[in-house]
Design a protein around this nucleic acid. Structure first.
Length: 494
RNA sequence: CGCGGGGUAGAGCAAUGGCAGCUCGCAAGGCUCAUAACCUUGAGGUUGUGGGUUCGAGUCCCACCCCCGCAACCA
């Protein structure tokens, strides 16, 4: 049994406001982090912000402020996610502009360079004179800039540092071979295997400083800065204090014999996390990750969220809307957490619309757990039910000996919640079948037995809800244990 | 011949080759502890199209149609 649990999200790029897709990722990670903390594992939970690169440099220029002030402002917005989404207390938040991160990225670079995996090469840049910007192939249509069809694209050659990705085909395939659960779900694992099998090309990992100074300085070369990807990926270990704090690094990141790091990422990040970053770790002679969990995207009304479609959903917007419907902040957070964890399939794309949200909220939170708690607690109150010791002593470690949720061990967050809602349903059925509300008038002892059964199992449900909906779980637990005033967990909304 | 995922009830999804199911929504009945909540029952399907294999196909094979991603230095 492992006593250390490391989990990290990817770092969102700070060129826009927090997006509900990232809320999904951090909430998934949070559920796993909380789950392991409840199992008494020592948890290191990392997130942060990716702050270098040309896009940010330009945005700051546009706004007429320096890049550092620009990223400072955005980083604080992302830091707020912790409070605004009810994230785990011990969350570590790293910024790629942190001094220790930059130093770590440079040390990482030196290691790769020393091993001979970094070299210089001419890099062909496609440049649109009209936009005065570099363009990638995917941005071009028929070899022309779609915004300036009348202009020819110019090819400019510049010297960049390259990473010898091509040398890692075999090592990566071996890594995949030896770790049959390296990437979940299987469909994504197959996708990355195919990609690696099809051949790897070295990629550029630097930019000319004179054109784009907003990056980590390259050791012993004043003329270039690191390409944002290279420095950003290093955050997963710089957050642990690598390279200085080797003890903490090994404790949480693990060793070559026993890798320990779990990473969660969106499907757009499959290659970067499960191939490029792993190759970089191998190049630097460091342990690889243990597992990469790939989640899907949230669509909005069946379409990819995009600014031009105007269907982007911000997590704060959902919370504000719920508060306007009469929920308090904590209830709103748990309601959002519920939807993201249960209604969005853990490994697939899922849809978010306000209509679906309301439907699911009313069915499962208001009518489900909310109403169940309310009817059970009311019956208990009516007969002045006294909480017995076996109920008081019930805690998360007494659930089948230790805290354990099967479906969470395999990262099936939505399925884990399905199980909980099956229990909720079965308690509703129990009440209907046994009718303790009738027994009260005929046979008080029998009614007490039923109510004891109900309260006991309601507390079990509350314990299982802890990682998913921490506030709801806490309210339920304290209400049961202290027989305090009956809360209305989730009022109906419309 | 670029790669991958998908098409099943109004919506969202599930079904080792063996009676096509679940949740929401909808309708009827029941119950009164509860937040017009809860329980039971019901309606709703030619499983994208056309072939094939098989005693038997949503599932396997072939062809086609449609949708959605990705197509690598755009993080």
């Amino acid at each position: 049994m492992n006593n250390q649990y490391y989990i990290t999200t990817t770092l969102p790029y700070v060129n826009s406001e927090p997006h509900i897709g990232f809320a999904l990722e951090i909430i998934h990670a949070d559920i796993l982090a909380r789950y392991h903390a409840l199992k008494r594992d020592e948890v290191f939970f990392n997130t942060g912000t990716d702050e270098h690169g040309v896009k940010i440099f330009r945005k700051a220029e546009e706004q007429g402020i320096d890049a550092q002030s620009y990223v400072d402002e955005y980083a604080s917005k992302f830091k707020e996610l912790k409070e605004r989404l009810g994230i785990f207390e011990g969350l570590h938040f790293i910024r790629t502009t942190d001094t220790n991160h930059k130093a770590a990225a440079q040390e990482f670079w030196r290691k790769c360079l020393a091993k001979g995996y970094i070299y210089k090469k001419n890099y062909e840049v496609k440049y649109c004179v009209g936009c005065e910007l570099e363009k990638t192939d995917s941005e071009l249509e028929n070899g022309k800039c779609p915004l300036h069809i009348n202009l020819e694209i110019e090819n400019i050659s510049e010297e960049n540092y390259f990473f010898k990705f091509s040398e890692f085909q075999k090592p990566l395939l071996e890594l995949y071979e030896e770790n049959p659960n390296f990437v979940v779900p299987d469909s994504r694992f197959n996708e990355i295997k195919k990609f690696v099998e099809s051949g790897l090309q070295d990629f550029s990992i630097s930019r000319l400083k004179e054109k784009m100074p907003w990056g980590v300085a390259i050791p012993d070369d004043e003329s270039q800065v690191m390409y944002v990807w290279f420095d950003a990926l290093v955050n997963y270990i710089s957050t642990l204090g690598w390279p200085e704090d080797n003890a903490q690094f090994e404790k949480f990141w693990g060793t070559k014999e026993q890798p320990n790091a779990v990473q969660i990422a969106g499907k757009d990040n499959l290659r970067q996390q499960s191939a490029m970053w792993q190759a970089m770790l191998l190049a630097a002679d460091l342990p690889t990750s243990k597992q990469i969990i790939i989640h899907g995207f949230i669509t909005s009304g069946g379409h990819k969220m995009s600014k031009s479609l105007g269907n982007v959903i911000a997590p704060y917007e959902v919370i504000d809307k719920l508060e306007a419907s009469g929920l308090n902040n904590q209830q709103a957070i748990d309601a959002l957490r519920y939807y993201l964890a249960r209604e969005i399939p853990t490994f697939e794309d899922g849809d978010f619309t306000w209509e679906r949200f309301v439907e699911s909220y009313n069915a499962n939170l208001a009518n489900g757990i909310g109403n169940l708690a309310s009817r059970i607690l009311k019956m208990a109150q009516n007969i002045s039910f006294e909480v017995s010791n076996d109920i008081l002593e019930l805690n998360h470690n007494s659930l089948e000996g230790v805290y354990h949720i099967d479906e969470l061990e395999t990262m099936n967050i939505d399925k884990a919640m399905d199980e909980i809602w099956l229990s909720i349903q079965s308690l509703d059925k129990y009440i209907q079948t046994n009718e303790p509300f009738k027994k009260v008038k005929i046979d008080l002892e029998a009614a007490k037995k039923d109510i004891h059964y109900l309260i006991f199992h309601l507390k079990g449900i509350a314990l299982k809800l802890q990682p998913f909906m921490p506030h709801t779980a806490e309210v339920l637990l304290s209400t049961i244990d202290t027989s305090s005033e009956i809360p209305r967990l989730f009022p109906r909304i419309n």
